[in-house]
């Protein structure tokens, strides 16, 4: 298999703070062609920043200091502006978290999608409207012909997210980055959108990097999972192994937060004590050590290296044992 995305040793720094305020700190991540990889973690763990860095869309305050991001075999950080613009949308595209604000309120859906087709030469002014309808039908937008002429405010959240997905798919990217695509939607719409994404993956054969904090979504969607904490991947592996036999105490903690299937409704849910570290506050050792029930002296001194055990990969001195 070929890797469509291969990130190695990525470090991104928050400008204006101390030298070590890294929001992404030595991140390695690979996505193979046609694969669905879920990137999970708490808010502030650097998931979205990782997504933005792939297409060089990071806010001006954050800049990448080290590492390589190979997208389709080419390093996006070495690309000039022209090449980068060419890559955006055709190699990879992004579906954002907030369908309410991620479309231009003053442009019709049709114009926003057609614009994408036109700049990449995938349609002419004459053929664009037809292609837009096709795309909207692909994402099962009801009444696509009428919806195309409408503005974002005429559409509900779910429909806007469909329009956003149609936009992202317009130039047939090999990687779709979905940054919490269902967080802002209600549960039934969430299901429809997730099903749509999987269905599109099967039909179009693209890879999906799904960013989420919802482990239910992960179980349903992903082939592989990478767990992110404090700007780095602490554990990754195939979805079944990772969810059934987590090795890293953080993954273990995340999974114990979920309510059990037949739990007593009055029972208190377990939680991971403490808060994730602020960027720059971890100087040495394992970033999870202060919150970890299994940590000891070595954890606060030495940052564990990535260890492989069968299909599981984890960064921990005292992992849970495989069953």
């Amino acid at each position: 298999m070929n890797a469509i995305l291969d990130i190695k040793g990525l470090r991104a720094c928050l400008r204006g703070r101390s030298e070590n305020a890294y929001v992404i700190d030595g991140l390695d991540l690979t996505v193979q062609e046609g694969e669905v990889v879920a990137l999970v973690g708490e808010s502030g763990s650097g998931k979205s920043m990782t997504a933005f860095s792939i297409l060089q869309l990071l806010p001006p305050a954050i800049h990448i200091t080290d590492g390589t991001i190979l997208l389709g075999g080419h390093d996006v950080m070495k690309m000039d502006v022209r090449t980068l613009r060419q890559v955006r949308g055709t190699q990879a595209s992004i579906v954002f978290q907030e369908p309410m604000t991620s479309l231009n309120p003053l442009m019709t859906v049709e114009r926003q999608i057609a614009e994408m087709l036109l700049i990449h030469g995938k349609a002419t002014r004459r053929t664009a409207p037809g292609k837009v309808i096709e795309l909207l039908e692909l994402v099962r937008m009801p009444d696509a012909k009428r919806r195309a002429k409408q503005y974002p405010h005429n559409l509900s959240g779910g429909l806007r997210q469909r329009a956003m997905i149609a936009l992202a798919l317009a130039c047939e990217p090999r990687l779709l980055i979905a940054d919490e695509p269902t967080t802002a939607l209600d549960v039934t719409i969430q299901q429809q959108i997730l099903k749509l994404l999987l269905d599109l993956r099967d039909r179009l054969g693209m890879a999906i990097l799904l960013i989420t904090h919802d482990l239910g979504v992960v179980a349903e969607m992903a082939d592989r999972v990478a767990v992110m904490y404090a700007g780095r991947i602490v554990e990754h592996g195939p979805v079944v192994e990772l969810l059934e036999a987590p090795r890293h105490p953080y993954t273990h903690g995340l999974l114990s937060c979920l309510p059990a299937e037949h739990a007593d409704p009055d029972e208190r849910l377990t939680e991971i004590p403490g808060l994730p570290p602020q960027p720059g506050s971890i100087r040495q050792g394992c970033p999870f050590a202060p919150r970890c029930p299994r940590s000891d002296a070595i954890c606060t001194e030495v940052e564990p290296a990535m260890t492989s055990d069968g299909a599981s990969h984890y960064k921990c001195h005292h992992p849970w044992t495989a069953p």
Binding site: Q86, T101, N104, E115, I119
Partner: peptide, 9 residues
């Protein structure tokens, strides 16, 4: 939506 526009290329 400006980030969206940028992500379009």
């Amino acid at each position: 939506f400006v980030t969206t526009a940028r992500s379009k290329g």
